[in-house]
């Protein structure tokens, strides 16, 4: 975060003191969400998600792999994130930053804990399993990567084709079945700025937020949480944000279930 970002963000504080957000957005409103599924036909699954001007592309590839020693009959899932330098002048090319690692791991935890990918279905034969590579590519940053990333991963995984392994060849084209998935997870991220809490922070709001809370849940349960930055939440606040996440996630699941086949 540069000094210029922080000075620009100071206006957010000015507005919040009279209970207003940019573009008259409500405190519990998402920006406009747009999902383009199958954006990368070369990948087994893909989706591009825009929340406002935040733009995240996810590509899913499956590859042959060895199982983990402790789970010989299960395949693997790997979620990574690239904060591309074209997405923000604050991003640099090079090894992953702590921010991008946190982003990938939080999204990964939600997907894993909710059992989105049935890793047992990725078993092929002894010492041979599929690894599902889920790569998040941030094309433009304007806040709330977590929710956009989770949505994009879900939209991609829900439409991922399952390659076939035949005669020691991987067949990625033709008539293929779908990757088995049995659940839908979404996340809701809120920012705490001074004593106000607002859903789906944009870039300017994130430049002045004191704390951030991401709650990933499916219909039945909370599946992952991550509190970020140095500010604090009270237990009461967390409790009400969990309630809010259950309510809001209905909208998000609705969007996911309505993007067609």
């Amino acid at each position: 975060m540069t000094r210029v970002d922080m000075v620009k963000g100071a206006y957010i504080l000015e507005m919040l003191s009279s209970n207003v957000r940019e573009e008259q957005r409500g405190f519990k409103d998402y920006r406009k969400i747009r999902i383009d599924k199958d954006f990368i036909p070369h990948a087994e699954g893909s989706a591009k998600v825009k929340i406002g001007e935040t733009d995240v592309l996810v590509g899913v590839k499956l590859g042959l792999d060895k199982p983990m020693p402790d789970k010989p009959e299960e395949g693997n899932l790997m979620v990574t994130a690239e904060l591309l330098p074209l997405a923000s002048t604050n991003y640099e090319a090079g090894p992953p930053s702590p921010e991008s690692i946190e982003f990938a791991r939080v999204v990964d935890r939600g997907i894993r804990a909710a059992g989105i990918v049935d890793t047992k279905s990725l078993f092929i034969e002894e010492e041979k399993v599929w690894t599902v590579f889920v790569d998040m590519y941030v094309l433009n940053y304007d806040g709330n990567l977590f929710d956009a990333g989770t949505l994009a991963c879900m939209a991609a995984l829900m439409h991922t084709k399952m390659p076939r392994y035949e005669d020691e060849n991987v067949i990625r084209e033709g008539n293929l079945s779908r990757l088995k998935f049995g659940n839908v997870v979404t996340s809701c991220t809120s920012a705490k700025i001074r004593n106000k809490i607002l859903l789906d922070p944009n870039g300017l709001e994130e430049s002045v937020m004191d704390a951030r809370l991401t709650i990933a849940n499916d219909e039945g349960a909370v599946r992952a949480m991550q509190k970020g930055l140095k500010g604090a939440f009270t237990a009461k606040e967390v409790d009400s944000l969990i309630e809010e996440a259950f309510e809001k996630s209905k909208e998000l699941r609705n969007i996911l279930n309505n993007i067609g086949d």
Partner: peptide, 10 residues
């Protein structure tokens, strides 16, 4: 090049 760009391997 993105890791998912090719029709082949990751």
């Amino acid at each position: 090049m993105s890791p998912f760009s090719s029709i082949e391997e990751h």
